[in-house]
């Protein structure tokens, strides 16, 4: 549906994106994850055709998007909900109508779609409110509703639930999943990993503007056997013990802060112990040291600088990673 090839983007001399290849399938939800400044928002603006990449190309529905006319046509089937959405001055309904009119939908049909979408998003009571009087959470809901009213083929959302409570978040993702089922390609950038992993089929992890083969949060797609309670899943050569009632395809995460790093095995209640070797050490200067460890698959663990010094760890040091079966997250 939407593909990016050789995307490079610079702000001045600084390269903020360097992506070889990305494909977003029709009728799928893809999560884009990564730390602040990793390039998520820039990527989404490029995918929405509102920012031109310095180099590289985008292909939509098999057609390369090259000219200004191509980009305008693309923006009529792709839409983006920004991290801090903007509502034009005027009522909520006027905001909802703006995009519909820009896409040639007018009159009673446009009004019908506004009413339907506001009801779907559970914000019908805000229809006549002045957009400038809405709370941050309400603005976010209206921005999502405004995008959904356009019935886009590609829906891009940047942190769509950062100001939402849990019930609103669940409602939003249910609506998004329904859109996915209708064939909409959805791409969501979010810090709220639990939600995006639960609802997305695939994810793209960005680190310093590049796609990372490993999520910063040790997230893996696995097949969980039938049954309840304690189970084992295979991850390459590793066997992971976990506790879940989920079965079938699922996403699991080994939170980097929950991985215990030691220099030798020790007796403990942790069911998971993996031997590995440190490949890279990064100190963020704010009391957190990130270790990249090759344990058969690449895993990330975070420790404090004092732990690093006490264990005398350096690149190449052998380590043992431990994590309780109950600490392995299943989405």
């Amino acid at each position: 549906m939407l593909s990016a090839r050789g995307i490079e983007h610079h702000y001045g001399a600084r390269r903020v994106l360097d992506i070889d290849s990305l494909d977003f399938e029709t009728g799928s939800i893809t999560a884009v994850v990564g730390a602040n400044g990793s390039g998520k928002s820039t990527l989404l603006r490029i995918l929405a055709f509102v920012e031109m990449p310095t180099n590289g190309s985008l292909v939509l529905d098999g057609k390369p998007i090259r000219t200004r006319a191509d980009r305008l046509a693309a923006r009529r089937i792709v839409t983006l909900v920004e991290q801090r959405p903007f509502l034009f001055s005027g009522t909520v309904t006027a905001n909802m109508l703006y995009g519909l009119r820009a896409r040639g939908c007018r009159g009673s049909e446009a009004k019908r779609r506004v009413v339907e979408t506001l009801q779907l998003a559970g914000v019908a009571d805000l229809a006549d409110r002045d957009a400038r009087t809405l709370s941050e959470g309400e603005v976010q809901k209206i921005a999502v509703a405004r995008a959904l009213a356009l019935d886009p083929k590609v829906l891009l959302m940047d942190e769509p639930t950062s100001a939402a409570d849990r019930s609103s978040t669940n409602r939003l993702y249910q609506i998004v999943a329904e859109a996915r089922d209708r064939g909409v390609t959805v791409v969501i950038a979010s810090h709220q990993l639990e939600e995006v992993y639960r609802w997305s089929e695939s994810f793209v992890s960005l680190e310093g503007g590049r796609t990372s083969p490993v999520s910063p949060e040790n997230v893996f797609r696995v097949e969980i056997p039938a049954g309840t309670g304690s189970k084992e899943v295979r991850l390459g050569d590793l066997v992971i013990h976990l506790v879940t009632d989920t079965t079938g395809p699922a996403t699991i995460a080994l939170p980097p802060d929950d991985l215990i790093v030691s220099t030798g095995g020790f007796s403990s209640s942790a069911r998971n112990q993996f031997q590995g070797r440190i490949q890279r050490i990064t100190d963020d200067g704010r009391g957190r040291v990130t270790l990249r460890i090759d344990a058969g698959v690449e895993l990330v663990a975070r420790i404090t600088p004092s732990a690093l010094a006490e264990l005398a760890l350096s690149v190449g040091s052998p380590v043992v990673l431990s994590i309780k079966a109950m600490a392995v997250r299943v989405f």
Binding site: R75, P85, A102, L150
Partner: peptide, 18 residues
């Protein structure tokens, strides 16, 4: 004016004049 105004208009399908 907030740069998001123009960007939002574009993401909603507006042409340059709109």
């Amino acid at each position: 004016i907030d740069p998001r105004v123009r960007r939002t208009a574009l993401t909603l399908g507006a042409g340059p004049w709109r």
